[in-house]
């Protein structure tokens, strides 16, 4: 009876997946970090579905099968195989596989020194309930908008002036909390020019739902000229 009901829900889910391309969607990456995570997700999703279906099938078969009578020794052996196979081998293999992808990936997302160039630094300060964006070495201060060059690694230095917020542009990279008294550094990079949406991800009070950030990614040349004109104004 089970699979007959899980199937419709799976179908619903899969049909919804066709709409993964939302402007906030993790599954619609536009930068190297987000791309890596979305690939990771699809891999883990496939593996998990396989494990889930296999275990459910085994369980239901175990409930329905008509066991032949076993000697105690035979039963013991079967039981031990199940426990060692499913309880030890399966999780350990899964964990090793997962980490061999996950650790290097996490490493690459760190704000490591970039060979041959200096990562661009932008400071973002969280307020209840708006974003203050500063470009060091210039006088530029923006509110609720962020301009970036495409194809260049950018280090976003985040902090907060009041409560904890979290800086998050799902299509570019993971999130990083903005904690008063500390400065955290998030490495992001956008592949191509375009417009993106950022959202405060840590609950920060009544205005939390509306704390949005608009991101405009320019080509590096456009970005330079934007910097200059903005500063000039």
């Amino acid at each position: 009876m089970m699979p007959s009901l899980t199937l419709p829900s799976l179908i619903i889910t899969l049909s919804l997946l066709s709409g993964c391309s939302g402007p906030q969607s993790i599954l619609n990456p536009a930068g190297p970090s987000a791309l890596a995570v979305s690939r990771l997700w699809w891999g883990m999703f496939g593996f998990s579905v396989a494990v889930l279906l296999a275990v459910m099938a085994l369980w239901i078969y175990a409930m329905r099968r008509n066991p032949r009578s076993l000697t105690e020794a035979q039963a013991d052996r079967i039981n031990r195989n199940w426990i060692i196979g499913g309880g030890l081998v399966l999780p350990i293999v899964g964990i090793v596989a997962l980490l061999s992808f996950g650790i290097p990936m996490g490493y690459r997302m760190l704000p490591l020194p970039v060979a041959g160039q200096q990562a661009l630094r932008i400071d973002v300060i969280g307020h209840q309930w708006w974003w203050e964006v500063r470009y060091p070495d210039t006088d530029i201060v923006l509110i609720n908008e962020l301009h970036l060059p495409a194809g260049t690694p950018v280090d976003i230095h985040v902090t907060s002036s009041d409560v904890i917020h979290s800086f998050w542009v799902p299509r570019l990279a993971g999130k990083l909390d903005m904690v008063p008294g500390r400065t955290n550094v998030l490495r992001i990079e956008a592949d191509a020019p375009g417009q993106f949406l950022g959202k405060c991800a840590e609950f920060c009070g009544v205005g939390h739902a509306h704390m949005m950030l608009e991101i405009e990614v320019h080509t590096p040349e456009d970005f330079e000229s934007w910097l200059e004109t903005y500063e000039y104004e």
């Binding site: 650790i103 760190l110 490591l112």
Partner: peptide
């Protein structure tokens, strides 16, 4: 084993 793979303070 994790300490073979990652830098300590980043």
């Amino acid at each position: 084993l994790m300490s073979l793979l990652l830098p300590p303070c980043l």
